[in-house]
Lab assay of single mutants.
Amino acid sequence: MQIFVKGLTGKTTTLEVEPSDTIENVKAKIQDKTGLPPDQQRLIFAGKQLEDGRTLSDYNIQKESTLHIVWR
């Protein structure tokens, strides 16, 4: 499925993911596209910070959802 990651600059990155992907895995995909290391990424969805060990489905993140990224 496709999801979007929007940064503070307003730039949006598209990712191809599975609902079973962990947040850690998603951060690795973001690094592949942007070069930003996972330890500098904070992902937010529906006002919650996403924890590395959880999956996208744990947070009810579905296709075409938009996550927000904040740099540490």
Rank of each mutant, 00 (worst) to 15 (best):
K11F: 14
D39Y: 11
T22C: 03
I3H: 01
K6R: 13
R54E: 04
I3R: 01
E16C: 10
N60F: 07
L56N: 00
M1H: 04
Q31D: 03
T22F: 08
T22I: 05
G47Q: 04
S20Q: 09
V26A: 02
F45V: 03
D52A: 06
P19A: 08
L8G: 08
G47T: 04
T9I: 10
D21C: 05
V26P: 00
E51K: 08
T9S: 13
G7S: 12
I3E: 01
G53A: 08
I69P: 01
A28H: 12
V70H: 10
T34C: 07
P37Y: 07
P38G: 09
P19F: 07
L50Y: 01
E16W: 15
T14H: 05
N60E: 06
L67F: 03
Q49N: 10
G53R: 08
A28Q: 14
S57N: 10
Q40Y: 10
T55E: 03
L8A: 10
L50T: 02
E64S: 10
D58K: 02
I3Q: 01
I69R: 02
E18R: 14
G53P: 06
I3F: 01
L50A: 01
N25R: 15
I30K: 00
E16Q: 11
L67W: 01
F45D: 01
Q31I: 03
K33F: 11
T9R: 12
L43I: 08
Q62Y: 09
K27H: 02
P37V: 07
S20T: 13
T12K: 09
K48R: 11
I69D: 04
S65Q: 07
L50M: 06
D21S: 07
N25T: 15
D58Q: 07
T9M: 13
T13A: 08
S65V: 05
W71I: 15
P19S: 08
N25K: 14
V70N: 07
T12S: 09
I23E: 00
T9H: 15
R42A: 10
K27T: 02
L36Y: 11
L56M: 05
N25L: 13
D32A: 14
K11I: 13
I44A: 05
V26K: 00
N60S: 08
L15F: 06
Q40P: 02
K48T: 12
D58P: 00
D32M: 14
Y59M: 03
F4K: 06
F45Q: 02
L56F: 02
K63H: 15
D21Y: 07
T13C: 10
K27S: 02
T66C: 05
S57T: 08
K48S: 08
G53S: 10
P38S: 13
A28N: 11
N60M: 08
G53I: 06
L15A: 02
T66W: 09
E16T: 13
K27M: 05
Q41D: 02
D21T: 08
T66K: 04
I61F: 03
N25S: 14
T14C: 06
I44K: 05
Q2G: 04
Q40R: 12
Q49T: 14
V70G: 06
I23L: 04
V5P: 01
N25D: 10
H68N: 08
E51Q: 09
K48W: 07
K11V: 13
W71C: 09
I23M: 03
V70A: 09
M1N: 02
T14S: 10
N25C: 08
S65G: 05
N25E: 14
F4H: 09
I3L: 05
K63V: 07
L15I: 12
L15P: 00
T22K: 08
L36N: 04
L36D: 03
E18V: 12
T34N: 04
Q49H: 12
G53V: 06
R42T: 14
P38D: 04
L43T: 01
S57A: 14
S20R: 09
D32F: 11
T12A: 07
D32Y: 12
N60C: 05
L15H: 03
Q31H: 15
K29C: 03
E24M: 13
V26G: 00
Q62N: 09
I3V: 06
G53K: 11
K11T: 11
I61P: 01
E24N: 08
L36T: 07
I3C: 02
D39P: 07
V17R: 00
K48G: 05
K33Q: 10
K63Q: 12
V5G: 02
T22Y: 07
Q49Y: 12
E16A: 08
R72F: 14
D39K: 11
V17W: 02
E16L: 13
G7Q: 09
L8I: 12
L50V: 04
K29N: 04
E51G: 04
T34V: 08
T34W: 15
R54D: 05
P38K: 15
Q40T: 07
D39A: 12
L15G: 00
I61C: 01
Q62E: 11
W71F: 11
V17A: 04
G7Y: 14
T12C: 09
Q40G: 10
K27E: 01
G7E: 11
T9Q: 12
K48Q: 14
E51F: 07
Q41Y: 15
T9L: 12
Q2V: 14
G10W: 07
L67R: 00
L67Q: 00
S65E: 06
K33D: 05
I30L: 10
T22Q: 04
T22R: 07
R42Q: 13
D58L: 03
Q2K: 13
I69Y: 04
S57W: 08
L56Y: 00
Q62T: 14
G7I: 10
I23H: 01
V5E: 01
I61Q: 01
G35I: 02
A28W: 11
H68W: 13
V26T: 04
S65P: 01
V70K: 08
L56T: 02
Q49F: 13
T22M: 07
H68T: 12
E24K: 11
I69M: 11
M1W: 08
D32R: 13
S20G: 11
Q31W: 15
Q62G: 12
F4E: 03
I61V: 09
D39L: 09
L15T: 01
L8D: 06
A28C: 07
T66H: 15
D58A: 06
H68L: 14
T55D: 03
Q41L: 15
M1G: 02
Q62H: 10
